[in-house]
Design a protein around this nucleic acid. Structure first.
Lengths: 164, 164
DNA sequence: CAGTATGTTCAGTCTTGACAAAATATACAA
DNA sequence: TTGTATATTTTGTCAAGACTGAACATACTG
């Protein structure tokens, strides 16, 4: 692929990830940084490189990387004899973020339970909405981790195949 | 429970749902309206009732209800001979919203694939992040609907038990 | 230690979008 | 049709927070 064209496509990839993050209630810049790191060759990039590539201030990148580290999507690596710190996407980054999704499910399940306490003694039809909410999220709170385990196992198996 | 105390708890429930929505990138008011409808007895409430209960303008409620209807969490009902429209939470509301979650997973899977096209021919280590992303979301895109089906089936079975 | 490269924090700017209030539109009743 | 109740759309205001740039802090080098 033509390099120039590739640059354009990369920007578009970066920007769409940014929008996705924004829609999910996070800063757009966080999506941009993650996307850029996913595309980077080599996979690790310094703060200055990120700032230049994304046309953002160092301050903004510094804040953003901290956020991304905190939610487990990227990590900082430092090489001996090199002053820079580098950032790269964390292995199993998305697995990690899905695990946090489970916690959000738990929040909703608990909220539903609190709501039901407030409707103690009311007609079943009145309680129906919250009961559905509670049962549904309880189900996923239970089943989701199992699904994740299955995923991890499948990955294990695939890796051991390659070793042979 | 003491009625006054109940009011306080309800406000807190409403507000927390609002915050949850905000964290998820939606207007806080949408969470408030949904929460209020979940608690309401009777379950249907008019635009004016919502505006008064939530101390919000009618315009704000009107916009918000339209959004909530659009994403499938509530529905409008009109009773013959009554000028009001009423709103109430939609049966299976949360099931519906989880289904939309699958679409979001698909977006990420497709994004990952687009990214990988840009890394055609690069070293496996460079591609690793995006490959993980693609495989992971592809897995969930496949498995999630199955989980939803299982949930629906379980619900079916529970309902038919009550009929007997 | 001084000097330089790197990273963080903070104050200020600017944009976005949630919300209120008012104007407009729509539907119904007499 | 006219009047009244209801709902939507629009315009404007305000606040939140993303981002910049600069000041500050830290860590490394010679």
């Amino acid at each position: 692929m033509d390099e120039e064209q590739g640059q354009f496509e990369k920007r578009s990839f970066v920007e769409e990830m940014g929008l996705f993050f924004e829609q999910s209630g996070m800063p757009r810049m966080a999506g941009r940084v993650l996307a850029w790191l996913l595309l980077s060759d080599p996979p690790q990039q310094s703060l200055d490189e990120l700032a230049e590539a994304l046309m953002a201030s160092k301050g903004s990148i510094s804040t953003t990387t901290r956020l991304l580290i905190q939610i487990g999507l990227i990590e900082r690596i430092s090489l001996p004899g090199v002053r820079h710190n580098y950032f790269r996407t964390r292995p199993r980054a998305f697995q990690h973020s899905l695990k946090q999704g489970v916690e959000r499910v738990a929040i909703l399940r608990k909220l539903a339970e609190r709501g039901l306490e407030l409707l103690e003694g009311k007609a079943p039809l009145t309680r129906q909405g919250l009961e559905e909410m509670r049962d549904m999220y309880a189900f996923f709170e239970r089943e989701f981790p199992l699904l994740l385990e299955r995923w991890e196992q499948e990955q294990e198996e695939r890796r051991s195949q390659f070793v042979q």
